[in-house]
Amino acid sequence: MNTRLLEKEWPALAVAIALGFGFLAATSPAFLTEFNIYVLLRSFCISLLVAFSQMTTLAVGQLNVSIGALGGLVAIVAGGLMEKLGVPIGVALAAGLALGALCGFVNGVLVTRTGIDGFIVTLATASVFDGINLGITKSIPFYKMPAALVAFGTARFHALPYLLIPPVLAAIALAIFLARTSLGRYLLAVGGNPQAAELSGVPRARIIVLAHSLSGFLAAGAALLALAQLGSAQPTIGSDWLILSFAAPIIGGAALGGGYVSVLATALAVVLLTLIQNGLVLEQVDPFWVEFLLGGLILAAVGFDRLRAARAGGG
């Protein structure tokens, strides 16, 4: 029983979150205020979709380092459509999501058609997306976003931002997709043992393309949330997503080689990371610690994983 519980990631994460929550509640009076919780949840929304975006590529055993660049491109394209062309919000957002999925699709096709390592492909496409982004904006953001969008970005019900709705829906949908649909199962089967999946009639290449497309779609979602939240289309949206996108799934126990991801544990890892970030602000610790701690947590997760493997194998 003991070892079984150790097998799952979420209990340890839940304990860590509870401890962090308790500590902050006890030491910082500002922590439990409605506004602080609202601020905390706001940054949680975007991070969650970023983490899910990487999680879907990890599920099939791929890496996607273009998430941030893709997000930045989607944000400024959607922003540009609304500001310069006066496209209605719904259409612009749909176009943004479609663009994200398309960019991911391109990543997936390049990976499966050329057989080149996913890391190199997405490193290259990241540079291409960044280039297009800079070409459109010349580094100048689109400031005039439709009022309705900005209002949605700041609207809240007590401590709950409306922005929380899309990522929570995405989490539920993703959990059901991965656990209960045949495509979702194929995704994990390809990640777990590509040969076995292929011998069982799973179309491996198409599944990898699907995972990349989904990853692009989710990254686009994160970018559009950031757009709504900031009230302007900044070309720098996404520039700091890379480490976060890997940190959350890995802390959530995702196997880097593919075949295993956990929506719940990834979400909890994002909660933990958001809590740490918020805690550092409240305790007036140098914000530079965030970067340091992210790296440290990933290494700790890797070490923990190793320990667990040693215990399972050598014990």
Binding site: F119, F246, L256, F288, F292, L294, G296, I298
Partner: peptide, 27 residues
């Protein structure tokens, strides 16, 4: 020693080193 993927380890340490630099120099 961990047998982990070089990608993850150096991604993490990149963050660790950069963070340590910022903490000590404040940029």
């Amino acid at each position: 020693t961990t047998g982990a993927n070089a990608f993850v380890v150096t991604l993490a340490s990149a963050s660790l080193f950069f963070g340590a630099m910022l903490i000590t120099t404040h940029g």
